[in-house]
Structures are given as C-alpha cells and as structure tokens.
Design a protein around this nucleic acid. Structure first.
Lengths: 199, 199
DNA sequence: TATGTTACTTACTAATAGGTAAGTCGTCAA
DNA sequence: TTGACGACTTACCTATTAGTAAGTAACATA
C-alpha cells in the first residue's frame, strides 16, 4: 500500500531537479542527462517515470500549479484584508527569485512557441487560476474599501500578474531581489487606500 | 568601397533570421541549421560571418540595442510632452508583439543563466539604456507638470520596463495584443496628470 | 514456490548540435 | 595576368540530444 521507501521517491525527485532546471535555464536549456546526472540514475530511468520530455514538462506544470494553488488557499485561510493578501501573493514571487529562479510558468511563457500542445494549455491554466484568485481578492478589497482602483477587476488582476512576472524577469540579470521588491511594492501601493480611510 | 550587392548582405540577413528565431523561440530554441536553412546557405557560411553562436548572439543584441536607441531618438526629436513620449515608448513594445515576438532582451533575460558572459553584459546594457531614457522623460514630465508620481524616478523607470516586459511575456501565450495594451495603458495612466491640470 | 510488478540498468540508436579544415569561385587592384 | 581577398561550399567531426529494447534484482502476492 505505502511506498517501500518514504524518502521522496524518484518520480518526485525527478520533478524537483527538472523544476529547478526549467526555472533557471528554460525548457530548452536542460536535458534528460542533466537531471539523470544530478540524481545519479540513468537517462533510461527518467523515461520509465516520464515517457518523454513533454510528459515531464506537463507533470512539472501540474504540480507547480497545484502547489501555487495551495499557497493561495493558505493566504485565504489567514483571512487578512485584501492589501495583506496581495502582499503575501507578491511574496510568493519574491521567494522564487530568492532561490535565483524565474516563475516556472513565466519561464515557459518565454519558451511558449517551442512547447508541445499539452504544456501550452497547462501554462495558460496556471495564469488563469492566478487571475481568478486575484479577481476575488480585488473584489473583496473594493467592497470593503481597503482597495481602490479604476478599470475592470480583470484588467487589474492581469496587470498584477504581468507586472510581477516582468519584475522577476528583469531582476534576474541584475541578480537583485530589491529591484523586484521595489517594482512589486509600487504595483501594489497604487491599489491600496490609505489605512486611515478603511471601513 | 561600397558592397557589390546592395541587397542587404548575408551578414545582416543572418541577423534578421536569427533575431526572429531568438525572439520567438529563445536562444536555446534555435540552431545554426535553422538559420542556414531559411537563408539557403550552409551551416559553415554562418561560421564565416559569426565565429560561433556566442558572437552571433552578441551581434544580435548590439544591433537591437542600437535600433532601439534610434527609435528613442526619433521619439525625442518629435518633441512631444512626456505622456506622449511614454505612449510612443510602449508602442515600440506593442509592435514587437504584433509580429508575434518577445522583446529580444526580455527573451534573453529568461535565458540569462545559459548565456555566455559577453551576451549577459550586452543584455544588461540594453535595460540600462532603456532605463536612462525613461528617467529623462520622467524628469521632464515631472518638471513641466504633465507627469505626477511618488517615489524615485529610477524606480518608476524600472517599473515601466518590467511592467512592459511582463505584459509582453504574458500576452504571447494568449496570442492577444489587447491584453498587452490594457496592461500598458494602466501602467502609464497611473503617471499622467489629467490634461486639464497641465501647466 | 511460481508469477507478477516495480524500479530500475546496460547497451544501444538516429538525429541534431555547434564547430572545423580545406578547398572553390568570382572580383579586383597592381 | 597574377595573386590576394571575400564569400562562400564540401566534407568532415565529436558531443549531445531524446528515445528505445531488453534484461535484472528486489520484493509482493497467491
């Protein structure tokens, strides 16, 4: 019933290594051999767990999206005001950058033209899910007066996603987390009402 | 003294093709063979004009940066108000997207970890040049009252660069130029004072 | 104890990668 | 007209790519 070994299991350790490689080098910037070498298994062993690079890529996005969703759920459960939720959201990105990584799906957005169809759809689903969560937070914040903005909620949600992804993208060549933080803070500061005005 | 043929010349046609490939597929998503096939020359001919992929990449960034600089000079020569200049700046990005492309240096920012040193420096120079131009425009706009913003000019300039690059990045999976435009408009609308207030 | 099943390995393969050495062919200046 | 030069091509080469076929050792179940 349970796995023989409860050390993570090769399938998920393959995902761990591949995830890091995609987030730093892109989907066309790593090979099965890179993953195999780091795990000290053979190339063929990877093919046992994931039929091909396309399937590995799909599994990568699926797991990443589900973990991201869990992080968003955790933010929801904390039950803070909308501006605090948005700050927590941007902290997810900052943490990725602190590991010297790009957002997995941001990286794959750059590689989009070269991706197999199943991966393309999965990337879009990630951004859609992010957008839906942000829309809910923005609506909450506007309703309770903690957020203030012009234009549609969807447009604001999209500009947050693209603003944070862009800030990640540009911060990496400069190796400078504070560059990301400054951009993220500006982005979100433009939405929050001054604390005095709340309620 | 002048070229035998004034049809573009192979060296620059190589750059044209490679540029398109990098902007759509990334630096690790194309090969010398792809470029050679499209130009109907041999692989070895590319090596004659550019010693290796690293040198080709460098030439690509240098030309792109210089063309970008020319576009910025043209905006300056038009002598419009700062908000108009910023709109023209964002139009450069929109035009790239309309060709189904990512900004060359935005794409290379994603590939950054895999790039040779010379290419890395050149990418950073591109962003620095963009930032310097934006800083001048922002200072001009603040001085003449056409722009209004909190925080340092440099931070605003950086948030414009990363905001536009991110909007490009995310718009491509959706194949939707209007997604970019909406984000770009929001980004710049937050800086302009209402026309009535000018001077 | 036979029969699977899981998680691999060894030993390949064909295609593609970037790159090189040596030659060819037309043009041009002396 | 000769010889140098620019712009290539032919013919390689080696490493790496993703991927496969067949086997095996360890365990589990009946």
């Amino acid at each position: 019933m349970s796995k023989r070994q409860d050390v993570p299991g090769t399938a998920s350790r393959i995902l761990d290594v591949a995830e890091g490689l995609v987030q730093t080098r892109g989907f066309n910037g790593f090979s099965y051999a890179d993953v195999a070498a780091e795990l000290q298994v053979t190339n063929a062993s990877l093919h046992y767990h994931y039929r091909g690079k396309a399937e590995l890529g799909e599994a990568l996005i699926t797991r990443y999206t589900s973990r991201f969703g869990q992080a968003l759920d955790a933010i929801d459960r904390a039950g803070d005001a909308a501006p605090v939720k948005l700050a927590a959201y941007s902290r997810i990105y900052a943490d990725v950058l602190r590991q010297g990584r790009m957002c997995l799906c941001g990286m794959l957005a750059a590689d989009y033209d070269t991706l197999p169809d199943a991966m393309r759809s999965a990337v879009v689903l990630f951004f859609d899910a992010s957008e839906r969560w942000l829309v809910r937070v923005l609506e909450q914040g506007r309703a309770d007066g903690t957020l203030e903005f012009t234009g549609s909620v969807v447009e604001v949600a999209r500009s947050i996603v693209s603003g944070l992804e862009g800030a990640l993208l540009i911060a990496r060549p400069y190796g400078d987390v504070s560059r990301f933080e400054a951009a993220a803070d500006r982005l979100l500061a433009g939405l929050a009402t001054s604390p005095a005005r709340h309620h």
